[in-house]
Simulated assay, not measured.
Amino acid sequence: MSAASPHPFESLTPQLVVEAVESLGFWLPGEPFALNSYENRVYSLTDEDRRRWVVKFYRPERWSDAQILEEHAFLGELTAASVAVGAPWADAAGTTLHHYEGFRFTLFAHVVGQAPELENPAHLFALGELIGQVHAVAVRQPFLHRPRFDIAARVEQCRERVLQARWLDKRQRESYAKVTHALLPLLEANAWPASALQRVHGDCHLGNMLGRDESFALVDFDDCAMAPAIQDLWMLLTAQSPEEWQMQLSEVIEGYETYCEFDRRQLAWIEPLRTLRLMRHSAWLTARWEDPAFPRAFPYVADSAYWDQHIRTLEQQRVALDSPRWLA
């Protein structure tokens, strides 16, 4: 896309959003409310019967129809197994992926609730149970079209993307190249075998887990992939002391093992996954910069201080890969 070409999402006006949803047979008396989403465009809306919905417009050219429909099929399996997830609405023909004016979109029932508290043992146990329920269904069959977590390939893609970014000066570019070159053999030495890959949600951060009390639902499977089970668990472990970390781990795993056995050898893959997430985030920001929403939301990416901090963080990850925290 040339700099002079408008981004496809620029034409996604509130009126078009309403028209798209109403093309499915709904009537919307009010305006859609834009939610905090950048990869796709996501809106909250209410129909004439006061039912609340979330509509997602997929980023053009990111996923194929087959990849999106595989995500929807997984959500259908989970719903059939009574797992609390944000499942897609289907029309009378069973269609979940809809098209309007060149956009692909899906409608989801609104999930009510707040993010969990990761300092609360009961919440951690409940989240472990929820992810265990998801994985008990996930291991029944693999994804055929969704991405696979190949750490070497993903790191190399991120590395190339960042090294092409225009904001790094010569010193930063050299430092980034040096630290990522040093990280790659450490990541490969701690890589998971292909046999450890299974279907996962892929992005289990707090914003994708909603509920009340000790009952939560998992939403937004847009990043579902084939990855180790620990990918859906490690972001729940946020403590900064060994005692608190072990408490979090104990509650999460105890809840998880209500439904699924957990191989504790996967704990050794936390730091590689953390490193990959850090690298992917910066690469993602540079890859999406032509989308006007990104310079507005992430102006600091164009600041030299951001890249200095990112390089320092990767240096810290090199140390962490050599001596993972609190796994004894």
Rank of each mutant, 00 (worst) to 15 (best):
A194W: 14
A87L: 00
M209F: 12
P185F: 05
F57G: 00
A287N: 04
L186V: 09
Y300D: 02
A297H: 09
S2Q: 01
A177C: 01
A268W: 07
A229G: 02
S11H: 14
L237A: 04
S215N: 12
A194I: 15
R41N: 04
H123D: 12
E261N: 13
A165V: 14
A283P: 12
F262D: 02
D47A: 02
A92K: 11
C260V: 10
W167V: 12
L197M: 14
V83I: 04
R212Y: 07
T79A: 06
F294I: 05
V319N: 04
L107A: 09
H135R: 01
G128P: 08
I270A: 09
L236W: 08
N208L: 08
A73D: 15
D303P: 13
C158V: 04
E174N: 14
D232R: 05
E31Q: 13
I151T: 12
L327K: 00
S11D: 10
Y300P: 05
L124S: 01
L218K: 04
P272W: 03
R264T: 13
D303T: 10
F9P: 00
V179M: 08
P60G: 07
W269L: 15
G132K: 03
L186G: 05
L218G: 08
A191R: 08
R140V: 00
Y58Q: 11
W307V: 13
T275S: 12
M226S: 15
T79P: 02
Q67D: 07
F105Y: 12
L75Q: 11
D91P: 13
L184S: 13
R148H: 10
A138M: 00
H181A: 09
S37R: 06
S2I: 00
F9N: 00
R154W: 10
L75V: 11
Q157E: 12
A152D: 11
E244S: 15
P324L: 07
L183W: 07
G255F: 13
I68F: 08
Q231C: 15
E39P: 04
A177D: 03
L16E: 02
W289A: 13
V18C: 09
T95K: 07
P14Y: 01
R146K: 04
W89N: 13
D308C: 09
V134Q: 02
F262P: 14
L127G: 12
A152I: 07
L237W: 01
L78V: 00
E10C: 14
E119I: 06
R173K: 05
R154E: 11
E214I: 10
P272S: 05
H281M: 07
D150I: 09
L206Y: 08
I131H: 06
P60Y: 10
L107D: 15
D203K: 05
Q246A: 15
Q114W: 03
Y306F: 10
R50D: 05
E160N: 12
A20G: 10
G86A: 05
P29F: 03
V219T: 02
Q15K: 08
D150E: 03
P292W: 04
A84S: 03
G102S: 10
A328S: 09
V179Y: 09
T13Q: 04
L24S: 15
A34E: 13
Q67M: 09
F294N: 11
A87I: 11
L187R: 08
V112G: 08
L127T: 12
A297L: 00
P14D: 00
D220S: 00
W167T: 15
L144N: 07
T275F: 09
L186T: 05
P29W: 05
R274E: 13
Q164L: 10
P60W: 12
